[in-house]
């Protein structure tokens, strides 16, 4: 059981509503007044059926999309637009094809205007972190899917953001690579303890990585589950009875939410 007494909220999601106007002129309420608090150094997963608004919420948190109403407060300040403090790892591959791996990771520090050698130092450090030191001079076209994800992660971490947002980053990868990257991510997280919000539709992934799993249905928080496992997490956990039970519980929760949402 986790102590929830003296944890400060790092991220406060306050009454977030997001409505879209469809082509036919109808209004689509993607988020309907979402309230959520995410604590400092916490790893939280957002899970839910497709179209439940998870990606939209993440984009709003990153400052890329304005909410229809409500606000996001990170570290005491309201989010007004994208910034290097709100790191986002996208679902799709969007590392820059025209830069080498090293050039990509240097992008953030370069943008900050840091001196050349500092930029290089930070970039190499983060490349080491994701295990791609030997690929520094490669172009993205020469990399596998998993490696490109590592580069994206290194790029975001190179900015030392206050908050790490990840939008189904491992969704397009095969199971082996996914598991590898999950372990790498946890290893990195154990060291930097960044407040992380991780969107996924994979129950196993959510449970394996997180402290808490937040179920989002119909644009609202439906359920919050505490992951009843200690840290650090190892692959053996995946095949334990405890894990299987948690999975079943979460699965049933999701099913009932889905049924309630679509009668």
């Amino acid at each position: 059981m986790m102590a929830t007494l003296d944890r400060r909220p790092r991220i406060k999601i306050d009454g977030i509503k997001k409505a879209y106007r469809t082509q036919e002129g109808k209004t689509l309420d993607v988020l309907r007044g979402l309230d959520l608090e995410i604590y400092d150094a916490e790893f939280v997963s957002l899970i839910g059926p497709s179209g439940g608004g998870k990606t939209t919420l993440l984009n709003i948190m990153a400052g890329l999309v304005p909410a229809t109403s409500g606000r996001i407060i990170v570290g005491g300040e309201e989010v007004q637009g994208p910034s290097s403090d709100l790191g986002l790892v996208f679902q799709e591959d969007c590392i820059f094809l025209w830069r080498t791996v090293l050039g990509n990771v240097e992008y953030g520090p370069e943008t900050k205007g840091l001196p050349r050698d500092e930029v290089r130092r930070i970039a190499m450090k983060n490349l080491d972190l994701v295990g791609l030191r030997d690929f520094a001079s490669f172009y993205p076209k020469e990399l596998s899917g998993g490696m490109k994800k590592r580069v994206a992660l290194a790029m975001v971490l190179a900015n030392d953001p206050a908050v790490l947002l990840m939008d189904e980053p491992f969704g397009s990868l095969d199971y082996q690579t996914k598991v590898e990257l999950q372990l790498s991510l946890l290893e990195i997280w154990e060291n930097n303890k960044k407040t992380t919000v991780f969107v996924t539709h994979d129950i196993e992934e959510a449970l394996f990585l997180s402290d808490r799993v937040v179920v989002l249905t119909n644009g609202l928080v439906a359920e919050i589950l505490e992951a009843p496992f200690g840290r650090p997490r190892a692959n053996e956990l995946r095949t334990s009875t405890q894990f299987a039970e948690a999975k079943i519980r979460l699965w049933n929760q999701l099913k009932s939410e889905e049924r309630a949402a679509n009668p």
């Binding site: 990153a62 400052g63 890329l64 637009g81 994208p82 910034s83 290097s84 709100l86 790191g87 986002l88 996208f90 799709e92 969007c94 590392i95 820059f96 992008y107 953030g108 943008t111 900050k112 790029m155 975001v156 900015n159």
Partner: peptide, 14 residues
């Protein structure tokens, strides 16, 4: 140019 590149760059502080 895919808008995703632009958005990614913005989140990196550009």
């Amino acid at each position: 140019v895919h808008p995703m590149y632009v958005q990614f760059a913005r989140t990196l502080g550009a």
